[in-house]
Amino acid sequence: MRAQAEALRDDIVAIRRDIHQHPELGYRETRTAQRVIAQLVALGLPYRGGIAGTGVVAELKKGEGPTVIIRADMDALPIQEDTDLPYASTTPGVMHACGHDTHVAMGLGAARLLLDADFAGTVRFVFQPAEEGCYNDPNGWSGGQRMVKEGVHVGASAAIALHQVPVIPTGRISIRDGAVMAASDEVEIIVHGRAAHAGVSPQAGIDAIVIAAQLVTTLQTVVARNVGPTDTAVVSIGTIQGGSATNIVAESVRLTGTIRTLNMDTRAHVHARIAAICEHTAAMHGTTIDCRIANGYPVTMNDAGVSAVARDAARRVLGDGALLDLPPLMGGEDFSFTAQAVPSCFALLGTQGAERSPYSLHSPKMIVDEAALPLGAAWLAQTALDLLAHFATQR
């Protein structure tokens, strides 16, 4: 499979560069979807467009058998590219700084490889919008969540996906059981105070800034003293806004932050502790604090059985020494919604070339080693074939 993929390298790279030059934000991937459709038409694959807004789903069916999903996300980020590449983004303020352009190219490359492969069953190619967030979705759903709501996973025995990582060397891949990526939630806290003259009569006010400062410090104890040392969680306050003048006791302060956890019990416990800290801090200061925690992406969990097949495929395609044993990452990933609905495997593929660029995901200087693209396409195709054979024996 690797040799066949290497023969397609120029085509896969050309697709990637075209998409990279014309990045589109979530739920706006109209041009990207059109390019995907054009490739599917050229391959003779039936497809459906307009799924979850701008998503595209195609199926390659060869006789009766199980169904395996290959998923690729399509959206870019609101970042101004700073790479000086000849195929850099031509859209001001938008860049494929997470490498979803490579995911699309590898997904289409896998379709090319599977077209001539011998198997029984169906491979469903899911080109998904809006992985990076919900944007203006009326329900506040990301593309992956909306696709699951629309039933893209129905009838599938398994699903696979990968994410390029530009700080892992090309040719290496991490496929683990259990948690791969963290649950990613957001917290918004509004501290209600009472304004007063900060120099003449500060005692007449309730200082929202003082309370907010205490909250920022106390919230750090959620991880330090409420999460076990063998577990992992993050609570970070990223913004703080409040106050109107140097001589006025602040009437309100707004704080926002992120919460990351690796299992559902810890997730619920951390949420409860943050809410309790806000409630009791408010009581202590004789005021009120609004605490809103918005559930984002759940933990991305790999099924052990699917991952075992995926690791074997990686050894066959990339070699025995390709596998890495990386710990879970604390980033969020909306493939988690698919993984909740169907046994899944999410792999991390190295795309760091010999120049060893230090810039990672979401950097305006991120560089992807395109030599990794045929490797990813080959792994996706081989894993899909092996999963079809695996599940066929269980029918």
Score class of each variant (00 low, 15 high):
residue 267 R to E: 09
residue 197 H to R: 11
residue 204 A to L: 12
residue 229 P to N: 08
residue 326 L to S: 04
residue 339 A to D: 13
residue 85 L to N: 05
residue 97 A to Q: 05
residue 77 L to K: 12
residue 76 A to Y: 00
residue 50 G to R: 12
residue 293 I to G: 07
residue 324 L to W: 02
residue 288 T to C: 04
residue 1 M to R: 09
residue 289 I to H: 02
residue 392 A to W: 10
residue 318 L to I: 06
residue 54 T to L: 04
residue 242 G to E: 00
residue 341 A to H: 03
residue 118 D to I: 02
residue 369 D to A: 09
residue 162 L to Y: 02
residue 286 G to Q: 11
residue 306 V to Q: 14
residue 113 L to H: 02
residue 179 A to W: 14
residue 193 G to D: 06
residue 165 V to P: 02
residue 276 A to K: 14
residue 15 I to T: 07
residue 170 T to S: 15
residue 47 Y to T: 00
residue 29 E to M: 04
residue 361 L to Q: 14
residue 328 P to L: 08
residue 206 I to D: 03
residue 95 M to Q: 05
residue 361 L to Y: 11
residue 386 D to K: 07
residue 63 G to A: 10
residue 157 S to K: 12
residue 101 D to R: 05
residue 144 G to C: 03
residue 369 D to F: 05
residue 15 I to Y: 01
residue 107 G to K: 06
residue 137 D to A: 06
residue 206 I to Y: 05
residue 390 H to W: 15
residue 235 V to Y: 02
residue 151 G to F: 08
residue 6 E to Y: 05
residue 360 S to H: 13
residue 240 I to C: 03
residue 331 G to S: 08
residue 122 T to W: 00
residue 42 A to H: 12
residue 289 I to F: 14
residue 133 G to L: 07
residue 132 E to T: 10
residue 54 T to R: 04
residue 362 H to E: 11
residue 324 L to G: 00
residue 14 A to Y: 06
residue 271 H to P: 14
residue 194 R to N: 10
residue 12 I to Q: 00
residue 125 F to E: 06
residue 234 V to H: 09
residue 323 L to I: 04
residue 92 P to I: 06
residue 98 C to Q: 10
residue 243 G to P: 01
residue 155 G to W: 02
residue 31 R to F: 13
residue 328 P to G: 01
residue 319 G to D: 02
residue 197 H to S: 11
residue 107 G to Q: 10
residue 152 V to T: 01
residue 70 I to A: 09
